[in-house]
């Protein structure tokens, strides 16, 4: 494992910690898209089905369990916590699941490497992860007064994707048989989706102003 991959994973973990701290600390999930969180949970479930059959390292197994656990907790809090659920912007979070899930499923069926249930679901998770942030970005555009934690959450998540690309470039040059067009294409698409957000994030940081995305 190289330093980019490790840093990427840590950013991913940190983004989840920031989100959980926000939700449980201030008992509010304002500005957070439940749809994005549920899609991430679906991504983790479909990708990590091999958790007990394909052992890579203790690190991988622990991280998989952490991601499954924390994303379940986030969805649980937003849907069922007596206080937290009241702060969810349900009317604003209108992105249609089907718009993201259906194309991912079709592409997975069309391009899967091998046609086994696990492999098709794994491919599905790669496509779905690339677009799962979209409901969150749409919700951010509609949210006035985005709080710092929400902005930082999306920033950390975007950093994780950027670092994974550096990891792939590194592996491309250091490992002989490292050619993964599907994963790379989806990863690059996913990172491009964040570009607009990054632009405004840095702008607000530079000018010391509150983050606001133009509608």
């Amino acid at each position: 494992m190289n330093v980019f991959r490790l840093a990427g994973d840590m950013m991913h973990l940190l983004s989840i910690v920031v989100l959980l701290l926000k939700i449980t600390g201030i008992k509010s999930c304002r500005g957070i898209s439940l749809k994005t969180q549920e899609l991430y949970l679906l991504v983790f479930i479909t990708r990590y089905l091999d958790i007990f059959t394909n052992f890579v390292s203790l690190y991988n197994t622990v991280m998989k369990l952490v991601f499954l656990g924390t994303s379940s907790a986030i969805v649980y809090y937003m849907r069922y916590d007596r206080i937290i659920k009241l702060t969810y912007d349900k009317e604003q979070d209108t992105f249609k699941y089907l718009l993201l899930v259906a194309p991912s499923a079709v592409l997975a069926l069309a391009t899967s490497h091998v046609y086994t249930v696990l492999e098709v679901l794994w491919t599905f998770s790669i496509y779905l992860e690339a677009v799962a942030i979209m409901p969150q970005l749409v919700l951010l555009q509609r949210t006035q007064n985005i709080d710092n934690l929400t902005g930082n959450y999306v920033f950390l998540l975007g950093s994780y994707r950027g670092l994974y690309i550096l990891n792939w470039i590194y592996r491309f040059f250091t490992e002989k048989h490292y050619r993964q067009w599907l994963v790379w294409t989806c990863g690059v698409v996913q990172t491009i989706i964040y570009c607009d957000f990054f632009y405004y994030y840095f702008l607000s940081w530079q000018n010391n102003e509150k983050l606001a995305l133009p509608a």
Partner: peptide, 10 residues
Amino acid sequence: KDSKAAKDEL
């Protein structure tokens, strides 16, 4: 083969 390699990432 290529998809196997990605399985060591998260």
